[in-house]
Design a protein around this nucleic acid. Structure first.
Lengths: 226, 226
DNA sequence: CGGCGCCTTGAACCAAGTCAAGCTCTGTGG
DNA sequence: CCACAGAGCTTGACTTGGTTCAAGGCGCCG
């Protein structure tokens, strides 16, 4: 039985949520069993590019990855940000439709998609896990669309901040530039900057440094995001 | 071997593209084999609601369906529009996160998700097909996000029109209201109306009636959308 | 024929984009 | 250790396009 089709809440042990690209223990084990190659990418390096064959599956060991797409008008649309433990690859078709780049120095395990497919054919838990990952991509993408549909810049930014790790009354570490945030939220770098300044002036957040934010009033962010 | 993981282009016979929710012949057959119940929904009727258990899979026999989500500020975000032959259900988690409503009088086949899961357990082609459907949802959602990221209203509308059936130099039939389009594109009904009027004034499209559009210059739409 | 949904259009306002300038941080070389 | 350079971030002034507010038209169905 494949978990992603179930609806009775009887998840198999170790099943991760439907919203994370985090590899389950079973999939993590599969990377080891297939003796994944470990690669290092310097800040800014390209992991794979739009248009190239999607014949590998990647698991981020450490670091942060930006997924983006070049629009025909020259603008760049950032689609997602990925962090340690997350997996990319299974959601792609035959060719990549996006570019993946390291935002910081990043270590990644790589396995051939074919090897993983062979394994999945004999191990239904892997099949289910890969399916779950695809659903996670779907849910994240829809969440992103919901962010983009927000009318005001501050609402979008609030939603973005809330989705970051440690947002609930903690500290947020942003590995991406303001430009990245802007390209993710469909805003200019100026508007992002202004919105951040505004939130700070209102006492909702505090800038520890340019890339580190402390959330002072998570409820206010919640309320802004609506 | 499950097709969605393959990258060598050797798709199984009858496999549909990765961007459509269209049921493959195999899945269509499964609906019949499981003796799907046929239900009729009047225009405006609710098929399933946000929050209710996602224990069924639906196949649209005829009609048109609107998928939407209620935002906490009272606004409604339309996520997708579905038509004859398309399948919804497998992409949901335990509970629906969206509401599905009939935009016109609609006929739908319904099977229990559990029954389909049982079938998928013994028939890998069904498993693969359900997975492909999930990927289709992902791709459509990302496409939608890309539309929403466009800065100008006319660009968004052009992209929306191009994605409609029969857009390439043909006629487009819109089952949805202007409000639906606005809620899909993150625009007000006014802006949608103005943009349509503008495209018509420029000779790019022609309004045969309020809900029927003839595309006169598909290339101009393409260029607008960028 | 009247009423109601749905659509269009005009005018005024405002938030985000654009243009332009200056600041901050970081890393590097003297 | 300090000076410098460059990338990244912030801020101000102005412009523009989408929302808001308001009014009116079209078309369908009872």
């Amino acid at each position: 039985m494949i978990a992603a089709l179930q609806h009775d809440g009887s998840s198999p042990p170790g099943a991760a949520g439907v919203d994370t690209h985090q590899a389950s223990p079973a999939l993590e084990a599969a990377f080891d069993r297939l003796s994944a190659r470990t690669r290092r990418f310097a800040r800014g390096a390209e992991i794979f590019a739009e248009g190239c064959p999607a014949d590998k599956v990647y698991r981020i060991v450490s670091g942060a990855v930006r997924i983006s797409r070049l629009l025909s008008d020259g603008r760049r649309q950032v689609c997602d940000f990925l962090y340690s433990g997350e997996v990319l690859g299974p959601e792609a078709g035959l060719a990549h439709r996006t570019t993946a780049e390291a935002m910081t120095d990043t270590v990644i395990q790589v396995v051939s998609r074919k090897a993983l497919a062979d394994l999945a054919a004999s191990d239904l838990s892997i099949t289910g896990e890969l399916w779950r990952l695809s659903l996670a991509w779907f849910n994240r993408s829809r969440q992103h669309a919901l962010l983009l549909a927000r009318q005001s810049a501050t609402e979008r930014l609030a939603g973005f901040l809330l989705a970051q790790e440690g947002a609930a009354s903690g500290e947020i570490e942003l590995p991406m530039t303001r430009q990245d945030i802007g390209d993710y939220l469909g805003l200019t770098i100026h508007t992002v900057s202004r919105s951040i300044s505004q939130l700070q002036a209102e006492g909702v957040i505090e800038l520890l440094s340019q890339r580190r934010i402390r959330v002072l009033q998570a409820s206010a962010l919640d309320h802004l995001h609506g």
